[in-house]
Design a binder for these strands. Structure first.
Lengths: 153, 153
DNA sequence: AGTAATCTTGACCGTTTTAGTGGGGGTTTT
DNA sequence: AAAACCCCCACTAAAACGGTCAAGATTACT
C-alpha cells in the first residue's frame, strides 16, 4: 500500500509541468530545485515519463521538458501504473498486472475479495483525478496558504 | 500500494485460525501445509501476531496457536497495520505512522490531498472488515465453489 | 524420568528493490 | 566553438523482502 519516492517525484514533477503548461519547456534543474528532488534521479524519472508518452523534451540550450498531452487527459492512475506498477494491494487482484499468487485456491480466497474492494476504491479515486485537477488543487491551496509576508511588498 | 507476502501469510493464517475457532489450538505445521506457507517463515509471523496481542500460543506436544480475541474484534486494518505498517500510500498522510516527506511545503502539496482520499478509502474498507466477516466470506465461497467431485461419495 | 512434539528466540543469508551517483555522449542555441 | 541542455548506460550503497538455521524452553505422554 505504498507509493515509492520515485513515484512521488514523478507526480511532483508533473505538477510543476502542469502549472507551467503555458511555458515552452521547463528545465530539469528548475524542477529539481523547486521540488527538492535530486537532479540526476529526476533526470531518469522524466525520461521514463517521456518514453511512456506523457512528456516530450527539447534538447540543447533552452531545452527542457513539457507535457505531451493536455493535463486533462493525464490521470494519476495512468502515471502511477506506469511508474510503480499495479495499483492493487496484491497483484492477484490487479486488472492490468495480474499475477497468480501462492494461495491454494483463488476462488476460495477471502483476502482476494476484500482486496478487490480496496483496489476498486483506489482505482476509482486515481482514475478520476487528472493532472489538470491536481494542478487546480495546488493553485487553490496556494491561494489559501499564501504566506502573509508575500503581500508586504 | 502493496501488501507483502508476509502480510498476506498473516491474513491467511488468521483465517485458518478463525475457521477453527472452536478447536483448542491449531499447529503451525497444519496452517503451513493447508495454506502452502513455508513453515519457518510462518513461525516468525505467528510469533509477531502473538506479541501484537492478536494470538496466543500453547507450547509443548499438542501445542499450537489460537486467537486471543473474538474474531469480531479483529479488524483487517489492525492486522495489516501491525504487520506492514502504514495503510496510507505515502506516510505523510498516515494517521498512525505519520512522517514528514521531502516536499517543499506540505500545506501546498496537491499529492497529499489526493493521497488522503486514497488513505481514507482504504481505511474505511479495512477498518470495516473483521476477521469474523472475512471467515464468513470464505465459508460462502467454499459453498459456491465446492468441487462437484466432493459430493460423489 | 525420558522422549518427542511443539513453540521461542535470535541470528543469519541471498535476492530484489530503492534511491540514488557518475561518466561520457549527443543537440541546440548563441 | 562553447555553453547549456537532454540522453544513455552502468554502477553502487542501503534497505526491504523472503526465507533458513540452530539451539533452547515447555509440555504431554509413556
Amino acid at each position: 500500500m505504498k507509493l515509492s519516492l520515485r513515484g512521488e517525484y514523478a507526480l511532483r514533477a508533473l505538477i510543476v509541468l502542469g502549472l507551467n503548461a503555458e511555458k515552452d519547456v521547463v528545465r530539469i534543474q528548475t524542477i529539481s530545485e523547486q521540488q527538492n528532488i535530486p537532479k540526476r534521479f529526476l533526470e531518469q524519472i522524466l525520461n521514463d515519463l517521456r518514453s511512456a508518452g506523457i512528456l516530450e523534451s527539447k534538447r540543447g540550450v533552452s531545452g527542457g521538458y513539457r507535457l505531451r498531452l493536455p493535463p486533462e487527459k493525464i490521470t494519476l492512475a495512468s502515471v502511477i501504473r506506469f511508474i510503480e506498477g499495479p495499483l492493487a494491494p496484491v497483484s492477484c487482484v490487479s486488472e492490468k498486472f495480474y499475477e497468480r499468487c501462492s494461495c491454494p485456491d483463488e476462488n476460495v480466497c477471502g483476502i482476494r475479495s476484500v482486496m478487490k474492494e480496496v483496489r476498486d476504491a483506489i482505482v476509482k479515486i486515481l482514475d478520476g483525478v487528472t493532472l489538470a485537477q491536481l494542478c487546480d488543487r495546488v493553485r487553490q491551496l496556494q491561494g489559501k496558504h499564501a504566506n502573509p509576508l508575500d503581500y508586504i511588498i
